[in-house]
């Protein structure tokens, strides 16, 4: 792999359609039959929670799933196939949201060039973003609630200058 290939921003490697295609496979399989991630932006909530996995390789960054805490609980109940009255605890949310990020991240990693490593899922406040052009975000909703999938370069990821394309 050339230096230029190894330092391309995510926008040169992946588009929103690809991310959406992966989400289309993940939602019915993991969240439940008939469940869909709808790529229509919804108003952002006052408070959000994120789950993410890091990808380390020719491209280094994170795949981040962000939603409101209430949406995270509803997603968890759906993933765990709990029936009303729904009782999910913080550990359940961490586990289910993390697994969603893990499956999204693993499939996104597979379409990136070169050999990469996938980290274990984390949950909390989303990691800092790197350059503005190293972000591929799909803003959408699930059951009418705000939810975004962001593929973002690490804040300290190396980047080639735009005039460093090899001849």
């Amino acid at each position: 792999m050339t230096t230029a290939e190894s330092t391309q921003p995510i926008t040169a490697l992946l588009d929103a359609e690809t991310v959406l295609g992966i989400a289309d496979q993940v939602w019915p399989s993991l969240v439940g039959d008939g469940e869909v991630f709808v790529p229509v932006p919804a108003p952002p909530p006052a408070e959000t929670v994120s789950a993410w996995v890091d990808i380390t390789g020719p491209w280094t960054g994170s795949v981040v799933l962000t939603c409101a805490p209430a949406t995270a609980e509803a997603l968890t109940a759906s993933v765990l196939m709990t029936r009303p009255p729904v009782v999910v605890d913080d550990e359940d949310v961490e586990d289910a949201l993390g697994e969603l990020a893990n499956v999204l991240g693993g499939n996104i990693k597979s379409v990136l060039p070169g050999e990469s490593r996938l980290g274990l899922p984390k949950i909390g406040s989303a990691p800092s973003q790197g350059r503005l052009d190293d972000v591929c975000r799909v803003a959408g909703q699930w059951r009418g609630q705000f939810l975004t999938i962001t593929v973002q370069g690490a804040a300290d990821a190396p980047h080639a200058e735009r005039n460093e394309v090899p001849l």
Binding site: L30, L80, D95, E99, N102
Partner: peptide
Amino acid sequence: DSRAMRRIVGT
């Protein structure tokens, strides 16, 4: 390591 996935596969 995911309880959710263990539950899905186990079910």
